[in-house]
Every structure is written in structure tokens, then in C-alpha cells.
């Protein structure tokens, strides 16, 4: 049973790390707009120009 205090403290420290990560993300503005990124994910990559260049080097698979 004496291992329980150690485990409890460890778990709180780990969970605290996640809390800090969350607060950091909020502070950096990652929660400001939850709607647009959700729509962006269905779109093609932002740098389609670079992709085009890569495509030229790579043999076409389709």
C-alpha cells in the first residue's frame, strides 16, 4: 500500500502536465476558432505549388 502515495503524486504531476499543455494551447489562440480548421481539413494542402513540384519528380501512380 505504501506505493499508492507515490503513484498518486506521479499521476497528479502527469495530469498537471496535460493541464499546462491545455492552458498553453488556449493562450496561444488554438481554441479561438474551432470551426474553420474543421473545414480546412477537407481541403487540399495549402502548398499545392510545392506538391506540384514533388509530383513532377515522382512517377505518377494513378
Amino acid at each position: 500500500m505504501s506505493v499508492i502515495p507515490l503513484l498518486v503524486i506521479c499521476s497528479i504531476i502527469i495530469a498537471g502536465g496535460f493541464l499546462v499543455a491545455f492552458l498553453w494551447a488556449v493562450g496561444r489562440g488554438q481554441y479561438d476558432d474551432l470551426h474553420t480548421p474543421a473545414m480546412k481539413i477537407i481541403l487540399d494542402d495549402r502548398n499545392t505549388e510545392q506538391n506540384d513540384n514533388n509530383d513532377n519528380k515522382r512517377p505518377r501512380t494513378s
Binding site: G16, L19, L23, V26, G29
Partner: peptide
């Protein structure tokens, strides 16, 4: 924006 950020932070702390 800062109001909603603060709200998220409060929720984070309370949830934790």
C-alpha cells in the same frame, strides 16, 4: 477573444 480564452482556461482548471 480574451474573454473566451479565459473561460476555456477556467474550465481547464476546474475540470482538472
Amino acid at each position: 477573444k480574451t474573454a473566451i480564452r479565459r473561460l476555456y482556461m477556467r474550465i481547464g482548471v476546474a475540470g482538472f
